[in-house]
């Protein structure tokens, strides 16, 4: 091989990661994604304010109708759920982050045709490595978004004088806030990376699950749905794991041991990571 050819070598992986990050962030983010981010932030802010302080519409002959947050409803009425209002504020941020994490893989792979990522695969990087670097770049950006949503929620609460949102929660509460989105992101990334029809697979799987449960219920075979519900809502179920300490805090289950949740989360995360790895490995994904 000639000396000339030795300068034609694959790029350093660090350069590829930086290129992927730039590509995901985009120099011209689409209006849809900007709008979604604004809407999510508004929902978080409004929901936080509403939940923490209630919403009052005040009007009178001397003043125009005004809508503002005031401490009218604090969930301490007849039904006392022992809800930590600060926890609810961050839970709202978590829901926002979960929703974002669900759609984030589609943003990460924006512009790449799932029918055949010819350009992406033609780059001088190992195909699996390249796919995983793209997924990893998206994953690295998720905590930033989650932090923004959390800051919006906490700042909104603080703006209305609810300073008690800061102290008193265990570390796991915050860990949960940042642990849930990556899990959702990786799970959704599996069909996005490995399938030619990711949306069809994603919605098809969800739809098929709902249809199956409905059919089994209609047929009186409720017991057969238990494994599915166990998978989602059992002690180590997916939704239980996603909810984790946040739900426990809200429901006043602070005494629950953290280790099983952490273990369940790690198991789900490992499962999702293996799924992404396999999706990136599938050799039949050719064009």
């Amino acid at each position: 091989m000639s000396a000339r050819q030795t300068i034609h070598r694959p790029p350093a992986l660090g350069s590829v990661v930086r290129a992927q990050l730039r590509l995901i962030l985009g120099r011209r983010p689409r209006a849809m994604w900007i709008a979604l981010a604004i809407v999510l932030a508004q929902i978080v802010a409004a929901a936080t304010g509403g939940i923490l302080f209630g919403i009052t519409i005040q009007s009178g002959p001397d003043q125009p109708t005004r809508l503002f947050f005031s401490k009218v409803s604090d969930f301490a009425g007849d039904l006392d759920f022992a809800i930590d209002e600060g926890a609810v504020a961050v839970a709202v941020a978590a829901i926002g982050a979960f929703i974002w994490a669900f759609f984030w893989p589609f943003r990460v792979w924006r512009g790449e045709n799932p029918q055949g990522r010819g350009y992406h695969w033609a780059m001088p990087v190992g195909r699996r490595t390249h796919d995983l670097l793209r997924v990893g770049a998206g994953l690295a950006l998720l905590p930033v978004l989650t932090a923004i949503l959390a800051i919006v929620a906490v700042a909104t609460a603080a703006a209305f004088g609810h300073t008690a949102v800061f102290p008193g929660w265990g570390v796991l509460f915050w860990v949960n806030l940042f642990a849930g989105p990556p899990l959702i992101y990786l799970l959704v990334s599996i069909p996005v990376v490995g399938s030619r029809h990711p949306s069809a697979w994603l919605w098809g799987t969800l739809g098929a699950g709902v249809a199956l449960v409905s059919l089994l219920h209609a047929a009186g075979l409720i017991r057969l749905t238990e494994p599915l519900f166990g998978l989602l809502l059992g002690r180590a179920g997916l939704l239980t794991t996603l909810g984790g300490p946040i739900v426990s805090e809200i429901a006043g289950w602070s005494g629950r041991p953290a280790a099983p949740w952490a273990l369940a989360w790690l198991c789900w995360l490992a499962l999702a990571a293996v799924g992404v790895w396999l999706a990136a490995t599938r050799r039949h994904r050719s064009i």
Binding site: H8, R27, R28, H120, P124
Partner: peptide, 23 residues
Amino acid sequence: GADVRARIGFVPDSQDFPYGGLS
């Protein structure tokens, strides 16, 4: 594959090229 592609300049036949949003 990566080493091979580093030595290749490729003009594909497809117009289905990604990143249409970029300049």
